[in-house]
Design a protein around this nucleic acid. Structure first.
Length: 604
RNA sequence: GCCCACGUAGCUCAGCCGGUAGAGCACACCCUUGGUAAGGGUGUGGCCAUGGGUUCAAUUCCCAUCGUGGGCUCCA
């Protein structure tokens, strides 16, 4: 009989899971090496929800191989192998891993550069150690579980094989990575697998097709989205709300062209540092024009269209700007990664004294706007300079300090927890990224608020200060939804396609029971449309039950059944998308109910 | 871009070892007028992603291209 709670021997559950997953990856490596004795092993760390191990094998793995390896792992686990830690010297390490070139490289790294086996800087003195379990010895720092007895064989599942470069560098050989997961109990594994199924069910790539929202077309080009009428309807609702909020929030809205002369992109520096992301130029009257990958240079031209006074700052200019970027074919992913997309871009141009207020204002605005769409959990990251390489960055030391301080102060003023990302800033300025957590607790990168110390210099942006002299303004670049495409994809997954009433492309569907009820259904539909609701009448020859099924599958929030009873009493019979049936209502009652749900941005 | 897999009707998918294709749904028409998730019948619909090669013969085998998926790297 196994111990009931295997985690109880460890500090806490997280510590146990971490060790468990790391140890299970070793067990997997043993199973793989038994099958391919000539195989080479790279690294195999624990990751969120599981583990992986990278191998260099004589042939590609198949799903059947995974089944076999998984079965072998269960057997190994049941053999009760201890995980034995041992510190060794270089000579022994070289000998143990004589036929393991990747491990030799890791040994080099540990000894020479003070790097650990994952390429991270080593804490403390360089020390070589191995963990042995069963027939497998790995260069490893641990920690591990004490014995394979602490791994529940019923809670192991290998998930997939994928290519991965040695050390993540595309110049290195491609290895085969096996992903797996392991939990404390079989039930936890079941729950995790069920979660993965739920993720699959909500996949926006499936839902946009089923709900007739958007499509992609091979003949039209990869990574280019086509918005159908229903998707278009939702997009317009998002945009209208966005525009209203921006005007209310003190922004002005601008429009800029889609292409610009090479000279502009030379000035902005994009041709130097962003050329790989840009499409080839087109010839216009002998001049090279580029399709825009970003909106910033255009907005700056608007700024420079005349002399600016400190009195008119801050300027907040927003734009739904469609940009095109070359993304490598392998990274395209539904709506979440496309080649043409519309950013909800804005630039805040202000004097240094205004920067703290402006940052706080944009932070509040972002979170509030996102909450309007039903997101209320966020993961915030502050990306700052790499303190060791100040020469890598545009802008002076003082500017970086002030900028960073304004970002930190804004986060602290709102008591928002955030993670500080050292060295993650782009070269032109520090930034705050806000990732939204969806209904399945996944984090999506949408919002970014970035300082730009590069463009004001390059374009020589100035304003006339109180002293009558020219000064350089601060420019903050921000996108809140990020891009409409990605945001829409996230929205679809968050709601699983069942949008809140205010965003539903069809809010109400009228279901006449028989043909003689169609006329009444149409007249009710007219009243509802008059009240501003989006309504359809299902006058097909389907039976009522089939009509209900179709409406459910289309995730229409409100179904109104109308038959003899409703016609006589001048009512409608309400069924909701959640399958509840509030029943008979007068048309006015229903209108009031629906309008309230819209106004409150409720799901139903 | 790289590694692996995949691409058959609008959609979801069958089609063993080569002999030019099938289901369900959707769609059209007919019958049915039915009270809270699929009523019945008939029918339309495929250059088997595209181009090349091997073969008497290719949807099936090989190569290339395009696209899609799982990853790596990168990113809104």
């Amino acid at each position: 009989m196994r111990r009931k709670k295997m985690s109880e021997n460890y500090e806490n559950r997280d510590e146990y899971l971490h060790r468990l997953r790391h140890s299970t990856s070793h067990v997997m490596a043993q199973a793989v090496l038994e099958k391919f004795p000539e195989g080479q092993v790279a690294i195999g760390p624990p990751i969120e929800d599981g583990f992986y191990y990278d191998f260099d094998l004589p042939r590609s793995l198949t799903p059947e191989d995974l089944d076999e390896i998984e079965a072998r792992m269960r057997a190994i686990v049941s053999e009760d192998h201890e995980f034995v830690y041992r510190e060794i010297d270089e000579e022994e390490a070289r000998r143990i891993f004589a036929n393991q070139p990747y491990k030799q490289e890791l040994i080099d790294g540990i000894l020479a550069a003070g790097m650990d086996e994952y390429g991270e800087p080593l804490v403390g003195a360089a020390r070589l150690s191995v963990y042995e379990s069963g027939s497998f010895v790995d260069l490893c720092r641990g920690p591990h579980v004490d014995n394979t007895r602490d791994i529940n064989p019923e809670a192991i599942k290998l998930l997939s094989v994928a290519g991965a470069y040695w050390r993540g560098d595309e110049r290195n050989p491609m290895l085969q990575r096996i992903y797996g997961t392991v939990w404390e109990t079989a039930q936890q594994l079941e729950e995790y697998l069920a979660w993965r199924e739920e993720v699959e069910k909500r996949d926006h790539r499936r839902l946009i097709k089923e709900l007739d929202l958007l499509s992609f077309h091979p003949e039209g080009g990869a990574g280019l989205a086509y918005w159908h009428p229903k998707g278009g309807r939702i997009r317009v609702l998002i945009e209208d709300y966005w525009r209203q909020r921006h005007y209310d929030g003190g922004y002005e809205i601008v429009f800029t062209p889609h292409i610009g002369r090479a000279e502009l992109w030379e000035t902005s520096g994009h041709l130097d540092f962003y050329r790989d992301g840009m499409y080839a130029p087109m010839d216009v009257d002998g001049q090279d024009y580029y399709i825009k990958p970003m909106n910033c240079p255009f907005q700056i031209l608007i700024y420079k269209s005349r002399l600016r006074s400190y009195r008119e700052l801050p300027l907040r200019w927003a734009e739904l700007g469609t940009v095109y970027r070359y993304e490598r074919s392998g990274v395209l992913h539904g709506l979440l990664r496309v080649r043409g997309f519309t950013q909800d871009d804005a630039h805040i141009i202000c004097i240094p004294e205004q920067i703290e207020d402006e940052i706080l204002r944009v932070l509040d605005f972002s979170l509030d706007l996102l909450r309007g769409f039903g997101f209320d959990e966020f993961k915030i990251e502050l990306s700052v300079r790499d303190p060791d390489k100040p020469e890598k960055y545009a802008g002076g030391d003082g500017m970086w300090k002030q900028a960073e301080q304004s970002l930190v102060r804004a986060l602290e003023a709102r008591a928002l927890p955030y993670e500080r990302m050292e060295g993650e800033a782009v070269f032109y300025g520090p930034k705050i990224d806000i990732k939204i957590r969806d209904a399945l607790k996944r984090a999506w990168q949408c919002t970014t608020i970035q300082f730009d110390f590069n463009l004001p210099e390059r374009f020589d942006m100035t304003y006339i200060g109180e002293d009558g002299k020219e000064h350089r303004p601060y420019v903050v670049h921000r996108a809140l939804l990020g891009s409409l495409e990605r945001f829409f994809g996230v929205l679809v997954e968050h709601y699983g396609g069942a949008f809140p009433v205010w965003l539903s492309p069809v809010q109400v569907i009228l279901i006449p029971i028989a043909d003689r009820h169609v006329e009444y259904a149409n007249s009710v539909a007219g009243q509802l449309r008059g009240a501003g609701l989006r309504v359809e009448v299902d006058d097909s020859s389907d039976r009522m039950r089939a009509k209900i099924r179709n409406a459910q599958l289309q995730k229409v929030p409100y179904m109104l059944i109308v038959g003899d009873r409703e016609m006589e009493s001048d009512q409608v019979n309400l069924r909701l998308r959640d399958e509840s049936v509030p029943g008979s209502k007068s048309v006015d009652e229903f209108i009031a109910l629906a309008q309230e749900a819209v106004a409150d941005k409720r799901v139903l």
